[in-house]
């Protein structure tokens, strides 16, 4: 996809596909490793930084899939705003600097069991349903213009509902966290 972007929308060549696949597996490997570290590390700030790695990897996956606008929004909203908010949450709740030993439940193996069971079921059904489905070879990057047209015509009602939801969440957060 990256190559297709450089070649302005011509179908991917063999080398291009190979490069995109290599990039994808590299990114997926890093993301899964960082996510595993995030849920097992004993330092809250390190968990936030590992989450940063995972979110960047997801943005890179969007680029491989040709969804540039979603990738840029991911970087702006998640890496910019949500990360800062989470780090403020860590600071305001006075998390200990350094490792803490009671971040996990004692019965966390049940959580592991649930996660592995879900992965088995989801993996089996995905392999069953989309076993060898290929992405279209002439996959085009989805440009910003058509997306904005779509949002402001077909999806105008969910968009407006989302605006009201954001306003309500903003006011709600201020009211809940207010000191009085």
């Amino acid at each position: 996809m990256i190559v297709a972007l450089l070649a302005q929308g011509t179908p991917l060549t063999e080398t291009g596909l190979w490069i995109a696949n290599t990039f994808f597996y590299l990114i997926a490997f890093v993301a899964v490793g960082a996510a595993l570290k995030m849920v097992t590390t004993s330092n809250v700030v390190h968990a936030a930084l590992y989450l940063l790695v995972v979110l960047s990897a997801v943005a890179a996956t969007y680029v491989i899939l040709g969804a540039e606008f979603a990738a840029v929004t991911q970087v702006l909203v998640y890496l910019g705003a949500v990360m800062v908010l989470l780090l403020f949450g860590v600071m305001l709740t006075r998390a200990k600097i350094g490792a803490e030993d009671d971040l996990d439940h004692e019965q966390r193996w049940i959580g592991g069991l649930v996660a592995v069971g879900m992965l088995a079921v989801m993996g089996y059904s995905l392999l069953e349903a989309y076993g060898s489905t290929q992405l279209p070879a002439d996959m085009q990057p989805q440009r910003v213009g058509p997306i904005s047209d779509e949002i402001f015509s077909t999806y105008i009602v969910p968009f407006e509902a989302l605006s009201v939801l954001l306003l309500a969440a903003l006011i709600g957060a201020v009211v809940v966290a207010r000191r009085d």
Partner: peptide, 24 residues
Amino acid sequence: MFLNQFLLFAAVLFCIGIYGVLAR
């Protein structure tokens, strides 16, 4: 590129997130 490589990647991240919610 297979569609499944992205879907399975998402499924793995989802299950790690589930573990995090339950275990933390």
